[in-house]
């Protein structure tokens, strides 16, 4: 969060992720997410195969050029100055187009309408709430906590025990990752 052109990014270091699900659980708990919705998912590939097993935590990646915002028929997305991609649930019609455009499968749809019909889209807000008044009850009900406004780190990265999940300005995140990879195997 140093330069003026800072863009907030997530990064999951798969060499550190131990598939503890803390990020996913903390997120669901912090934002009172409905059953069946997890804004952050932990996926493990090659489970049980020695040397090949790898886990990674995935949520909205807050793209610099988000395809979801391009395809939305009601234009409900907006991008904050710091690069966090948010959406307005009062505009969203739950059509699902953002999910088709998204490379990361981030948008999800709680079945909260009458007869279990698909409701409005829900996705990771990087703990930055939504368009409603910051830290208002309404913002909290629709989008969960606004930790960014409180000067806190997003809950998923805050609880990550191995510091696999990094969040912050893209340059800072890549600097940390670069340091990690270059110093690997050089310690004691």
């Amino acid at each position: 969060m140093s330069s003026e052109t800072s863009r907030m990014k997530f990064m999951c270091d798969s060499s550190r992720c131990i598939q503890c699900f803390a990020c996913s659980v903390a997120c669901a708990e912090a934002h009172d997410l409905p059953v069946g919705i997890s804004r952050r998912k932990v996926v493990t590939l090659h489970e049980g195969v020695e040397g090949k097993e790898v886990s990674v935590s995935i949520a909205c990646m807050h793209c610099s050029d988000p395809p979801c915002a391009k395809v939305c028929p009601v234009d409900c997305f907006y991008i904050r100055e710091d690069g966090i991609v948010l959406h307005d649930k009062k505009k969203c019609i739950g059509c699902g187009y953002c999910l088709y455009a998204c490379p990361f499968g981030a948008p999800q749809f709680p079945r909260d309408g009458a007869f279990g019909m698909r409701g409005v889209m829900d996705k990771c807000t990087m703990c930055a709430g939504g368009p409603e008044k910051t830290n208002s009850a309404e913002e909290r009900r629709f989008y969960g906590q606004n930790r960014i406004a409180e000067g806190k780190v997003p809950i998923c990265a805050a609880v990550c025990a191995t510091n696999a999940l990094l969040v912050g300005d893209a340059e800072d995140v890549s600097a940390i990752y670069r340091k990690r990879t270059s110093s690997r195997g050089k310690g004691e």
Partner: peptide
């Protein structure tokens, strides 16, 4: 043309 209807419950009802 949902954007010109302002989205929200109106267009959501149209979808249903």
């Amino acid at each position: 043309f949902g954007v010109y209807f302002g989205g929200g419950p109106l267009v959501m009802t149209a979808r249903h």
